[in-house]
Write a protein that binds this DNA or RNA. Sequence first.
DNA 1: GCGCTTATAGCAAACGTTTGCTCATAACTA
DNA 2: TAGTTATGAGCAAACGTTTGCTATAAGCGC
Lengths: 335, 335
Amino acid sequence: MRVGITTIAKMLNLSPSTVSRVINGKGNFSEETRKKVMDAVKEMNYIPNSIARKLQQKETKLIGVIIPDITETFFASVIKGIEEVLSEKGYNIFLCNTNENADKERKYVDLLYENRVDGIIVATVRNNIASDDILFNGNIPFIFIDNTPNEGNQFNSVTTDNFLAGKMAADYLISKGHTKIAAIMGKQDETTGRKRFEGFLKGLEENSISKDESLYKFCDFKEASGCRAMEELIEQKGFTAVFIASSKMVYGALWAVKKAGLVVPDDISIIGFDIIDKYQVISPGITSVIQLEDEIGKSSAKLLIEKIKNKEDKLYHQLYMEPKIIERESVKNIM
Amino acid sequence: MRVGITTIAKMLNLSPSTVSRVINGKGNFSEETRKKVMDAVKEMNYIPNSIARKLQQKETKLIGVIIPDITETFFASVIKGIEEVLSEKGYNIFLCNTNENADKERKYVDLLYENRVDGIIVATVRNNIASDDILFNGNIPFIFIDNTPNEGNQFNSVTTDNFLAGKMAADYLISKGHTKIAAIMGKQDETTGRKRFEGFLKGLEENSISKDESLYKFCDFKEASGCRAMEELIEQKGFTAVFIASSKMVYGALWAVKKAGLVVPDDISIIGFDIIDKYQVISPGITSVIQLEDEIGKSSAKLLIEKIKNKEDKLYHQLYMEPKIIERESVKNIM
DNA sequence: GCGCTTATAGCAAACGTTTGCTCATAACTA
DNA sequence: TAGTTATGAGCAAACGTTTGCTATAAGCGC
């Protein structure tokens, strides 16, 4: 039904090889045949079959992108960044949304292998990937973003410097005079969550503020748990500021604050995480550590392409993006 | 380097065909050879080559999903819905983010054709697709979501009933006693924007409220234009309520309201669009018409799969999802 | 004219599967 | 016992390209 390169060849009394060469513009052919072929291509509405080409070339120009939840603005922005550089370089995205399900993630990795993608970018929800996992043993280049499982350096990654992010949050609050600082942290089995907390503690330590374990709540990054944590803190008392390590937990926490009849920042100062809120629809504006989302996407895509072009290069790159703080109105200066 | 079906066949003194049949579990083979093959598969770490399989079967199990901006929560949610049903049915997503660029969209369509995707779901930014466009003339099933270009019924689509949405907004405001109603509308060359406005006008008409063209501002769905429109309206005066037809324009408009020192809903009542805000971080909460985002995703995926299974079926399906209104605190009852 | 280079284009293998057909053998059926 | 059916497995074509190698003819220097 559909015309292929051979159909055209037959029609023009040429061999498939010449037609192929004309279409791809490589090799030698006369201007005359070039024109004949191109005309036929147009007239017969020929559409190259990438599948066949990919089989031949052992290159699919497809990149698997595995993320937990495309609905989180962070990941959406990352993907946007990825797409931008990928499409420019002729690569395309095979999208895998895992719904934060480790099992689905594993299956998607298998699928990507079967589909012979040229590379993989993965924001994993697995906290420890077995060293005999296909990811580590297959020969498809891959980059971890956001969360890096496992210790050691045997992989490439692009992440925010979460340790620094946590430290910056502590430093900031301290610089505003706070010393009784609570924290609502994400999962500690993920590097994203753990490093933020470690950095936070480091910030306290460097400023000679002693730890108060009772003020640190560990949640799952989601709204509901942030709300619950804040409720507990409000009941406990004994703090003037809170570092909340994800945007969703901030939303949940704000809800708890409102329900308790308290006011930010008069009663409680808050420094959040990933609160972009470009048009300040939240009031008071929440001062927040933010990650450079699309930079993470772009950098990971660039790094991956480098790895693909240069497969023998066994060097491991681990890129850390510096976070920023956006000052808004949620932290009271009590100096 | 990598083992294929033939490598295994050779190793076991079998023919590729039997190996293939064992792996796919179709055809006849003895339990003995089944075991031999399966063992070899495991031991040699055989990974099927989907590309080869796809070439042979003329089926890629790939669905092209074209959207303007994955960063908009609406599209992210739609995609999530799509992924859910697609992955369950063994299909995968070839993601195309067009950045609202019609040209890029066109190129992506070509690319999808070259890649022989089994189907396409497209939220187009093109307001009129030529009738000789490949989409309409190729033989790949496709579904429009969100925005449907062209008149007529020669395509499948899944969209919110935007006319109804606009009408519901008008009806709601009127039911609260408002009669001087402004509107900040999106692009009128897209059905999404136009139908919302038409429905809105219909609502006025049915309630015998005469039109006041000066109160209707036409924007581009984005924050900045929403802000500007609201500034104009505030300057003009002469209204008690506004219908704002996109979430981003609501954010922009709120900004303008705040800057003008006015208060919602005391000075201005607002009914927005697509304001999900599950945890009410915006205050006052914005009453809003909302679309069932993931339902749109799921339904479009289901419909597409149906079309793929049933290519001869030349029936066109146009599904309209009923919007909902979420009542919050941004509309004052002045009855 | 002779050898040599260069420009064109064809041949055929390869990429890794799937599948219709054939074939041999074993197992029934009457 | 002959004829039919079921079972297990191989052959080879096909899917639509790309590409290394080869063949032919023309162009050129001498």
